[in-house]
């Protein structure tokens, strides 16, 4: 007697996609549960974590923002290898405004997000027409170029960087600010990508000539997507400037480009939530492996490979599927 596993969509899934979901608490909870859970966990975590792990949480939220920024670009058909450009531009914007002009962090953060986004968009405007790997290569090169420009011309402190930034008002403020911004960005832009506007962006990645043929200027839409993604990355950079109270050449480092991509791949691209979930897995894992010492990177790499081979769709897509299904073993007739 052979058996096979049968997977069936839960009836509650179909019911909870309709207006009738409002009829019962159970169905409303089914719908709201997966959305409320991360909100509650994120808001409660700073209360229970030690000071060290609060810093890790900040790092997690920053990488989650960069991963979301990467995912927005990839959904719009632009595979970026240069999140460090957005991160670094935002970081330097905040640094310059605070160091030279003495703006308070509460003003530099929004302004750096705005201007960091604008500067990055303008830098990438000429290559917006490039597709695929050609666009990726340019995004990879520009942050590496900016590092050399700062080193050679010795502007903004040169290799020394700018130090002595104003910190944020308190440690609690710091961690709650980044967590709340992260949640707002995650839910806000998930909603945007589900709207008709987001559909146009996804259309560009799917079939750009067809979007042109609908009378839509794809370069204008791509520029907007680029600005949105760059602003998110720039905010993350500006925030870290005030956390470290320092900004220097490492903000353009390759880590800020590659780790967000790894997070999006582990979590599952295309949903923003997957990218964020990837950051919540990878960054704490990297901290936990610190005890191992030299082999840390090896373990980390093995984990990445196992994740990609075993769950190519991403952790988030896997969990989403399991949430909506139940499984049972049924007998196969001979």
């Amino acid at each position: 007697m052979k058996t096979r596993k049968e997977r069936i969509d839960r009836g509650i899934k179909a019911r909870s996609q309709d207006i009738f979901v409002l009829c019962s608490w159970r169905e409303m909870l089914y719908l709201a549960g997966p959305r409320l859970l991360p909100v509650v966990v994120c808001l409660a975590l700073p209360l229970v974590l030690s000071v060290y792990w609060q810093k890790v949480l900040i790092s997690v939220a920053v990488f989650a923002l960069l991963a979301i920024s990467w995912d927005i670009l990839s959904q719009s058909g632009m595979i970026s290898l240069g999140q460090a450009l957005f991160f670094g531009t935002g970081a330097y914007c905040a640094g310059i405004m605070n160091h030279y002009w003495g703006f308070s962090p509460l003003i530099t953060l929004p302004l750096a997000a705005l201007f960091g986004g604008l500067i990055s968009t303008v830098l990438l405007l000429p290559v917006l027409r490039l597709r695929g790997v050609y666009f990726s290569m340019v995004t990879l090169i520009i942050p590496l170029m900016l590092v050399r420009v700062i080193e050679a011309t010795k502007i903004f402190g040169g290799t020394e960087g700018l130090s002595g930034m104003d910190p944020l008002p308190s440690a609690g403020f710091e961690v709650y600010l980044i967590v709340i911004v992260f949640l707002a960005v995650l839910f806000g832009f998930r909603r945007l990508m589900d709207s008709d506007y987001g559909l146009v962006l996804k259309g560009i990645s799917d079939n750009d000539r067809s979007v042109i043929n609908a009378g839509i200027n794809i370069y204008w839409f791509k520029a907007q997507a680029l600005f949105i993604a760059a602003s998110i990355g720039a905010f993350a950079g500006a925030f870290m400037t005030h956390v470290y109270m320092f900004v220097g050449m490492p903000v353009f480092a390759l880590d800020y480009s590659i780790l967000p991509i790894a997070a999006a791949v582990v979590g599952g691209p295309g949903t923003l939530a997957g990218a964020a979930m990837g950051a919540f897995i990878l960054v704490p894992l990297s901290e936990l492996l610190r005890g191992i010492g030299g082999l840390r990177i090896v373990f980390y790499g093995v984990f990445l490979v196992v994740c990609i081979v075993a769950l190519p769709e991403g952790v988030f897509h896997y969990m989403e599927r399991k949430y909506h299904q139940f499984e049972r073993w049924v007998e196969v007739e001979k």
């Binding site: 146009v200 259309g203 079939n207």
Partner: peptide
């Protein structure tokens, strides 16, 4: 034909309907 393969058929129509002319 150049449809948006990943989207449902009726969602394909949203993109021309979103164009400035429509």
């Amino acid at each position: 034909v150049r449809p948006f393969y990943q989207l449902p058929a009726f969602k394909n129509m949203i993109i021309p309907l979103y164009s400035p002319r429509a």
